[in-house]
Amino acid sequence: MAWSDSSSSKTSAGTASRSSPLKLGVGLAYQANLRSFIEDSASPINYLEVIPDTVWADLGLGREPRYVEDLDSMAFLEDLNHRIPVIPHGIGLSIGSAHRFNRDQVLKLAEWRERFGFPWHSDHLSYNLAEHEAGEVNVGLTMPLSYDQETLDLLVPRITEIRRLIDVPFLIENNVYLFKLAGAEMDEADFLNRLCDESGCKLLIDLHNIYTNSRNHRFDPLQLLGTIDLSNVLELHVAGGMEKDGFYLDAHSGPLPTEIWALLEWTLPRCPNLRGVTLEIVGSWVPTVGEDRLRGELLALQSTWRRYQPVPEPPQT
């Protein structure tokens, strides 16, 4: 393993580097049809984020082995991990499910930590598994959690356990929601701040999720960002979306909207502990966007990253 730490231009290797507070730079979310683009050493990416649930098959509770990996994908990722970090970003943990904790998935990720040495990992502030008369259902969407004390009480011990089992920062991603849960005890920023304080987790702030929510529910995204403790933010997500039936969707469907660039410019200098900005695009949209445009977006992200990270010194007066 030989990752390049973009903040210091030093090459780090081995276990010590795996725990170092790397500022990686710009990452890309893995899609199988982007392999040649990712493999190209000239591609402007400093790390690859991968949804582990897309490169393993979960055979279900009680099955042994439970997780069967796609050998071809794993070989690709392990090879790439010699050049740049491969960082898991889960969708299957369903950390907010009240009826059970998906501990097997955490143990599987702990195994990945040994294999890949990733510097952090993340999952969503949501649930997709719920009880049902058929046993258990998977809604297939990131269902919203209520910003209540009861939810904090559910999440804090689980995150504490994750942090005990996997010795690198665990990031929770703010959710996108198309409907609101009324009567919440806390607003979103207060909930995220308290979650970090009480559990020790860090944040992955998805700027496109905030933008999507702000358009659909008519609020000022900067007002929300301004009340989140941005010192907890280790990663940002950026993406594009689309209109459908009067709603704006977090579809990861194309180039970044102008508004996302503006949010990024506002946020980047205010996150002192930020380690990376990840561009998300769905594989089916890659042919439409084109690799040249994708490369252009990544280069623009690199330029923006270099302008603000590390945080500039305050002006001398």
């Binding site: 297939g140 969407l141 929601y177 198309l178 409907f179 009324a182 009567g183 459908k244 039936d245």
Partner: peptide
């Protein structure tokens, strides 16, 4: 009582139409 109210409001929300559309699209 709060959860019953939340459930009723969510089920009437136009955002639930889009959520259901995304769910069906996934399947």
């Amino acid at each position: 009582e709060l959860e019953r109210r939340r459930l009723a409001e969510c089920s009437q929300d136009r955002g639930m139409d889009v959520t259901r559309m995304l769910h069906k699209g996934w399947r």
